[in-house]
Design a protein around this nucleic acid. Sequence first.
DNA 1: GTCTATAATTTGATAGAC
DNA 2: GTCTATCAAATTATAGAC
Lengths: 205, 205
Amino acid sequence: MIKKKENNTEKQILEAAKNIFQQKGMDGARMQEIADTAGINKSMLHYYYRSKQKLFDAVFKSAINLMAPKIIKIVETDEHLFDKIRSFTNKYISFMNKHSFIPTFIIQELNRNPDMIKEVFISKFDDSISEKLKKQIEELVEKGGIKPIKPEHLLINIVSMSIFPFMAKPLLSAVLQKNEKQYKQLINERKMHVAEFVIDAIKIK
Amino acid sequence: MIKKKENNTEKQILEAAKNIFQQKGMDGARMQEIADTAGINKSMLHYYYRSKQKLFDAVFKSAINLMAPKIIKIVETDEHLFDKIRSFTNKYISFMNKHSFIPTFIIQELNRNPDMIKEVFISKFDDSISEKLKKQIEELVEKGGIKPIKPEHLLINIVSMSIFPFMAKPLLSAVLQKNEKQYKQLINERKMHVAEFVIDAIKIK
DNA sequence: GTCTATAATTTGATAGAC
DNA sequence: GTCTATCAAATTATAGAC
């Protein structure tokens, strides 16, 4: 109770840092702007996080921690593959509607510094996740439940169609000549569309 | 003939600027590093391009000019839709194998400054391109040649599956546990795979 | 056209009072 | 814990000699 302010400020800083880093990236973000957004003094950033790099790391880790559990949870259920696909596209696109900067942010920073993935990601995604999904798909192929397809390609296809439209929004909305509202509508349709498109592609007959 | 050097230096600068800007982005790029890469003095950058922003603009424009014609050319042919799809995924993925930084670069910078698209893009993609493709798809749907699908979604699906794997390489290769060579192999398979996957999804029967 | 030297500004980080 | 003032380094940009 005594040190309520302390905790509060730290959260305010992290919240502001998320906003700025996710929109402008590590290189484009300015400590001053983060401080202004948090409504506190610039010195406080260093008091709580020592350096820009450490503050960035906290933001990046929090972004990963927000995304990873959603994937893992779906993959680990015992649903039929088709239902897993429906759950994934629906939940994932909904999630990104609320956190639209996260996918671009993560992928962009990972391209700048590919080694970051080893520190943060390996702990979250242990081998079993991808192995389990791989096995489920391979078994379905053998049983004749779906057309032959490499599990890797199926996964890449689903993830690509779910995430890319968020990253390429400025490009796609211009090419397709959609305004803000129309593009959002298009994205919402994809919650169902992507799943049915994928299922149509792999189901027999 | 007299001023051969002049032209040469300008090209060297642009070439070096492409390398640095496309890898590090506007914010992460340093004029000094561009000069070093070009093997010339930093002052020369300003002599030829006045400012970092103007040099960046030249690089960005050149990236757009490299990508856009490939899309337009394919869309404008009179091939059957299925063959257009095959041409697109094949040629596009081949292209990005050679220029792997371009898609991330364009999309990243467009997110930072969405207004850039109006200056560079509108002139390249006039309305007729997207309209023509839209019409071809709608006609095929009506004739019963393919399942009902919004042209917008079909376009987004194809582009997503072609481009995203390049942008998310650090992420995907880690999740799928592929080394450099294996991931490249996977990408190459996609030249054919994406087209057949899409065709399977939309064809009747 | 090309180089050296330097100006002008921005920015991450710290010292020290309260 | 929080603020003001300031440092030190980095970085874009320019002036001026050759």
